[in-house]
Design a protein around this nucleic acid. Structure first.
Lengths: 249, 249
DNA sequence: CCCCGATGCGTATGGGCTACGCTATTTGGC
DNA sequence: GCCAAATAGCGTAGCCCATACGCATCGGGG
């Protein structure tokens, strides 16, 4: 029971733990090279443009050479989703939990904005890559001195991550769509809705439209919602911490 | 300015507003038929299995026939993402906002659990389909008598939807992965982490592991997080409503 | 009754993933 | 020094996919 529980292959892959080899031709690539090249393609041309052939070409190898490093394209996608979070900002220690989590969120979102395609990669399991775990650890650390027990900390962080994944999809993906196709938004949006959503069946929606909320651009104001939705969640966390630390102990 | 501002083609498609035709052969399908068939395929075999050929076969038509109704596969995906929310539960009126939003959330999540692939469809614009707008309207209605102004209501609902999208990805997609591949989770998860995440670089994470939070199954407890994360957000909303209605007016 | 216009669809093109087997390269053991 | 084993690199080919194009087919208006 000391050591050799076999690691799930994908975990080993993410951490670069390949058995040191003796015989045979030397590898000309590393798994990390491949992940980086794939991320570059996705950043430049979108996730749909990531093909084994294109990634291989960027590395100066043939398509099939990649399969010596990666079992399938799905494995490559897994690598990419860890590589996308590779940029780790400086997060100073010793801040109060709310400031720390706000900075953490901003840092994470900044990274995700650089790789908006992460939202399109299906999630196949809990986080196991080194970069994902680093972010997880830093969020837990921010809650270090709140007096919450470890299980509650995980709950709070999971909730926050949950929120951010939604933010990624709605905010970032939506603004990417906006950048590509502004005429679908703009004043047209509210006007199209009135044409189609009659007041009888959608009363609350029509009240919003009548109040002019959708006038002008609907480009999803990052700043506003970032402060808004996240702020509300953190308010809830604050209330939770108070409840927990006043009650027991 | 009375009427004929051209609707964006995709909006017309979603609402079934095609010009009534006079001459020519009769269509054997409707756009709704196609959307339904595509949803059935995705439910049964996953989004990746949705191909024009498979959808057409299920309808007894040839592949190319679909292109008389839909310009591209992307348009079909748009139709699917509205069709996936077609089931509209009874949401009683006259509840307080918090109960109403909780019920709303549960109803929405129940639908999404039946169509977990929705998380993988890229978002290309604001909601325009009839079903999406129905859900939007009902959430706004739940906030009807809170005294918030219309813009704030939209903010709260957007935040909630943001949260739910994350929930969809992390909760639902993750449990789908769990169902397919339980051995990647289970007790193995915590154990794999200790093998790989050394205590020096991930101190907060290791404290959590040491506390036994990851013992047993990590199947992402739907109930727990549903109440947990959502509850925290709603607590924040409650504080917000209080602030807003006490301050002005 | 005929013909215009719309639908249905067969074919072809260009791309994608990946199984398979051959070649090239490296090194451990003798 | 040399061989054999082990490994990397990759060309080929099979299969599936989205979709452009052109022709066959149908149905109602004149």
């Amino acid at each position: 029971m000391t050591d050799e529980t076999e690691l799930p292959g994908q975990v080993a892959l993410l951490w670069g733990l390949r058995e040191t080899v003796r015989r045979g031709r030397k590898p000309s690539l590393t798994v990390a090279d491949i992940a980086r090249a794939a991320v570059e393609v996705a950043d430049a041309e979108g996730l749909a443009a990531v093909s084994m052939a294109k990634v291989a070409a960027r590395l100066g190898n043939s398509t099939m050479a990649l399969y010596r490093y990666v079992k399938s394209k799905d494995e490559l996608l897994l690598l990419m989703s860890d590589e996308a979070m590779a940029e780790r900002p400086d997060l100073p220690d010793g801040l109060d939990w709310r400031t720390a989590l706000t900075l953490w969120t901003q840092g994470l979102l900044a990274g995700l904005r650089r790789h908006p395609w992460t939202a399109q990669i299906p999630i196949s399991g809990p986080p196991v890559g080194p970069n994902n775990l680093w972010w997880f650890d830093r969020a837990l650390r921010a809650l270090g001195d709140t007096g919450l027990d470890e299980g509650d900390k995980v709950g709070v962080v999971m909730g926050l991550i949950t929120f951010l994944h939604g933010r990624l999809r709605l905010g970032i993906e939506l603004s990417a769509g906006y950048a590509e196709n502004p005429e679908a938004f703009g004043g047209q949006y509210g006007r199209a809705l009135t044409r189609v959503a009659d007041a009888h069946r959608y009363p609350a929606l029509n009240k919003v439209i009548a109040a002019g909320v959708f006038e002008g651009d609907v480009g999803y104001d990052e700043e506003a919602d970032g402060a808004f939705g996240l702020g509300l969640y953190l308010d809830g966390v604050a209330a939770f911490i108070e409840r927990r630390t006043v009650g027991p102990e």
